[in-house]
């Protein structure tokens, strides 16, 4: 009977989990193999480190890598920092709180490209923001906000798109803390900040890590925001990868960038999640 049950479970898992593992596994396999010189569209397959050497040695690659890592860290941490106070504020329903949370979460349902376009209009050289700033006399001439060198446009778009996601996860976690537990903390002498540091933060650390990981990965692999609003003097990893593939079909080098991007996404997000839990848990030690 035991093996029949096992077989049944495996059969049930195959169309869903099985397909996922097969597909993601083979894509990963192809990427890794291509980066070492296999699966060539033209020419002979042979093992070689040449593509890795070429890409890792280029200045463009290291700039891309650190740029994407920077955007991902800022997007992940920024979104969580913005979302925490709002989640705590919206913990208990009050009149209008549902409307607020619906409006705040609206960007979740706006596709990335549309979000880019919407804000390009607003922050354009002759857009509303610049006209407003000049009208009230803060600046004399328009400020460059799109394709700016500091990547503020991209950071802004990332926060606009990802804060609602962090809010979604954190609201759920914060709401699952009972009123009495928070009341008990107050009663035992904990003020607002102590309640956050010693009760709310440790009890929501898992939701926060999930938000950090997913936002980090999404922002590290960003293409749409970078292409439309990003600085022109540096490419994001995804952009660089597409560029290598499209110009002269440098698939093997694109594969190197792709594998590096996956490594960045995996380790970057895990490191971030680990650091955040260490920081938050230090709240329990005095």
């Amino acid at each position: 009977m035991r093996w029949r049950r096992t077989l049944l479970i495996l059969a049930l898992l195959t169309p869903g989990l099985g397909v996922i593992l097969l597909m993601i596994g083979s894509v990963f396999y192809v990427a890794v193999m291509q980066s070492f010189g296999y699966y060539n569209l033209v020419g002979e397959d042979s093992f070689s480190l040449e593509h890795w050497e070429k890409v890792l040695g280029s200045k463009q690659f290291s700039r891309s890598l650190s740029y994407s890592a920077y955007i991902a860290v800022v997007a992940a941490i920024g979104s969580v920092i913005l979302a925490y106070p709002i989640a705590i504020w919206l913990r208990r329903p009050f009149r209008g709180s549902l409307a607020i949370s619906a409006v705040l979460k609206a960007p979740l349902f706006v596709p990335g490209l549309v979000a880019s376009f919407l804000f390009l209009n607003v922050i354009a050289f002759h857009g509303v923001v610049n006209q407003f700033l000049m009208w009230i006399g803060i600046t004399d001439e328009p400020i460059r906000m799109q394709n700016d060198r500091g990547a503020w446009g991209v950071v802004f778009l990332q926060l606009w798109k990802n804060m609602p996601f962090a809010l979604l996860l954190l609201t759920g976690a914060v709401q699952s803390i009972s009123d009495e537990v928070l009341d008990a903390a107050r009663d035992l002498g904990a003020g607002s900040f102590a309640r956050f540091r010693k009760v709310i933060a440790p009890l929501t650390v898992q939701a926060m890590q999930a938000a950090l990981i997913i936002i980090f990965i999404g922002a590290a692999g960003d293409f749409a925001f970078q292409v439309t609003a990003g600085p022109t003097n540096v490419q994001s990893m995804a952009q660089y990868m597409v560029f290598l593939k499209d110009s002269f079909g440098r698939w093997n080098q694109a594969a190197v960038v792709g594998v590096s991007l996956m490594i960045l996404a995996l380790f970057g997000s895990l490191i971030l999640a680990f650091i955040s839990s260490v920081v938050l848990k230090s709240g329990n030690k005095w």
Partner: peptide
């Protein structure tokens, strides 16, 4: 005076123990 400043301590119906802290903590 807010609860954190009062010389009172409360025992809650649901006990309201901090789930992430040990008995001693």
């Amino acid at each position: 005076a807010p609860p954190e400043k009062r010389d009172t301590a409360m025992c809650f119906q649901s006990y309201a123990l901090f789930p992430h802290l040990t008995v001693a903590e």
